[in-house]
Design a protein around this nucleic acid. Structure first.
Length: 278
DNA sequence: CGATTATGATTAA
DNA sequence: TAATCCTAATCGC
């Protein structure tokens, strides 16, 4: 179940396996049979990821657009491919490895213009080196939407999913229910830094692992946990032990620590206390 | 073996 | 907000 880091990882692996090679295709599901037949025997010239969207560019200029959605999966196996799991919609067979696609929300043959239209709808992708945080920061500063909902809006920032939004707000120390525009400038900037850092870590490691700065140089505490997460589907906060709270935001569950993510930003330096009147 | 849940997103109401 | 697309793992009976 993929967020942006997964898609970028798969794009990287497909580039290594398939780009520059003649690819044989095979479509098990009828709905994509025609497209697959057209691609069969062509050289795959590029694979690239934007947010959660994957684009494969082929020799004749056509583009395969894939969005895995909630259930979609790419499966990689050696050549010749021996097994087939589920309803495989598209099979790409390269010189050494084959890639099977199943369950994707989107698998379509598009033109470069249609690809551009998809990209136009996306906010900056933190996993792309040229990502410009400007539009994201401006949206946060302007929007009354809860920040926890805005992080799932792919037009605001591309590639964040339900696990990352919860974890990023934890490492950023922000209550997900706070209206975006009420974040302080340093919290906005910090949030973008966290997004770039944590998704980049996920891309390198191959799965979601969030790390707060203060734990970077420290062995992680031996607390039972799923996949090294701070709050998502956790019962107690790994840092302070508080009971994790859960609610729905943008129609998805979100978990947060009421102590590490206070509703009001905690002041680094307490304001001078005014002498009591009278 | 059926019900439930899931790292997504669009469309209709 | 709800229904829908569609796959797979997990859990309860």
């Amino acid at each position: 179940m993929p967020e942006g880091h997964t898609i970028h990882r798969q794009a990287r692996e497909q580039r290594a396996d398939l780009v520059g090679h003649v690819v044989r295709t095979d479509a098990v599901q009828d709905r994509f049979a025609g497209a697959a037949a057209r691609l069969d025997g062509q050289v795959l010239t590029d694979v690239d990821a934007y947010g959660k969207h994957l684009f494969q560019t082929w020799e004749d200029g056509s583009v395969v657009h894939v969005h895995l959605g909630l259930y979609g999966k790419w499966r990689r196996q050696p050549v010749p491919p021996l097994w087939m799991v589920g309803a495989v919609r598209l099979r790409l067979v390269g010189p050494t490895h084959a890639w099977d696609l199943a369950g994707a929300t989107v698998c379509a043959l598009v033109t470069p213009e249609e690809q551009e239209r998809v990209l136009d709808r996306l906010g900056p992708d933190p996993l792309r080196p040229d990502a410009d945080p400007g539009p994201f920061l401006a949206k946060v500063a302007r929007s009354a939407t809860p920040i926890g909902a805005l992080l799932l809006d792919q037009a605001a920032v591309a590639g964040i999913g339900n696990v990352y939004r919860a974890e990023l707000l934890f490492t950023g120390g922000i209550d997900p229910r706070r209206p975006a525009k009420e974040l302080r400038p340093h919290e906005r900037d910090r949030l973008w830094t966290e997004i770039v850092h944590q998704l980049g870590l996920g891309l390198d490691v191959g799965h979601i692992v969030t790390l707060r700065d203060d734990e970077l140089d420290r062995p992680r505490p031996e607390v039972p946990r799923d996949e090294g997460l701070y709050v998502y589907h956790q019962e107690a906060c790994r840092v302070c032990g508080s009971a994790i709270r859960t609610t729905a935001l943008a129609a998805r569950r979100i978990d947060w620590c009421p102590h590490c993510q206070p509703r009001r930003p905690r002041r680094t330096h307490e304001a001078p206390v005014a002498p009591p009147p009278g």
